[in-house]
Simulated scan of single mutants.
Amino acid sequence: MKQITPADVEQKLSAKEELQLIDVRETDEVAQGKIPGAQNIPLGLLEFRMHELDKKKEYTLVCRSGGRSGMAAELLDRNGYHVINMTGGMLKWNGPTE
């Protein structure tokens, strides 16, 4: 599974690179702050909503600490999606939130 650090994600966003971010935390967790532009699809709903995603795009998956996003990455990878897990999750995120 491909991985990326929160610092590298922040650097790419600062350089105006277009990233497809999916935050797999629960709605109440996301309400406390998420990476700007990230789409919230809670892990428990991902299996039922993955048809909304484009298999031609690469998605960076985010959660609180990296565990749930790792599980989400495995699920999407098994189903033919291009994914990267953000290691350390929001606990290691030092960039802006919305």
Score class of each variant (00 low, 15 high):
residue 1 M to F: 10
residue 5 T to S: 14
residue 6 P to E: 04
residue 7 A to S: 04
residue 7 A to E: 08
residue 8 D to S: 06
residue 10 E to P: 00
residue 11 Q to M: 09
residue 13 L to D: 02
residue 17 E to N: 07
residue 18 E to R: 11
residue 19 L to T: 09
residue 19 L to P: 03
residue 21 L to H: 10
residue 21 L to T: 07
residue 22 I to G: 04
residue 26 E to Q: 14
residue 28 D to C: 01
residue 28 D to I: 14
residue 29 E to V: 11
residue 30 V to R: 03
residue 30 V to Q: 04
residue 31 A to H: 03
residue 31 A to I: 04
residue 32 Q to E: 13
residue 32 Q to Y: 00
residue 34 K to V: 11
residue 36 P to F: 14
residue 37 G to M: 05
residue 37 G to N: 04
residue 37 G to H: 01
residue 39 Q to L: 12
residue 39 Q to F: 04
residue 39 Q to P: 00
residue 40 N to P: 10
residue 42 P to T: 11
residue 42 P to E: 11
residue 42 P to C: 12
residue 47 E to R: 09
residue 48 F to W: 01
residue 48 F to T: 06
residue 49 R to H: 09
residue 52 E to Y: 00
residue 52 E to D: 07
residue 55 K to M: 05
residue 57 K to T: 03
residue 57 K to E: 09
residue 60 T to S: 11
residue 60 T to G: 00
residue 61 L to H: 05
residue 62 V to N: 02
residue 62 V to G: 04
residue 63 C to M: 02
residue 65 S to Y: 04
residue 68 R to T: 08
residue 69 S to T: 11
residue 72 A to R: 00
residue 72 A to Q: 02
residue 73 A to D: 04
residue 73 A to K: 11
residue 73 A to W: 03
residue 73 A to R: 03
residue 77 D to L: 06
residue 78 R to Q: 15
residue 78 R to S: 06
residue 78 R to G: 01
residue 81 Y to N: 03
residue 81 Y to S: 05
residue 81 Y to D: 03
residue 82 H to K: 15
residue 82 H to G: 06
residue 82 H to A: 12
residue 83 V to F: 13
residue 83 V to Q: 05
residue 83 V to R: 06
residue 84 I to D: 00
residue 84 I to G: 03
residue 84 I to A: 12
residue 84 I to W: 15
residue 85 N to Y: 13
residue 85 N to T: 15
residue 86 M to F: 14
residue 86 M to Y: 13
residue 87 T to E: 13
residue 89 G to A: 14
residue 90 M to N: 11
residue 90 M to L: 15
residue 91 L to V: 14
residue 92 K to V: 09
residue 94 N to F: 09
residue 94 N to S: 11
residue 97 T to S: 08
residue 97 T to I: 15
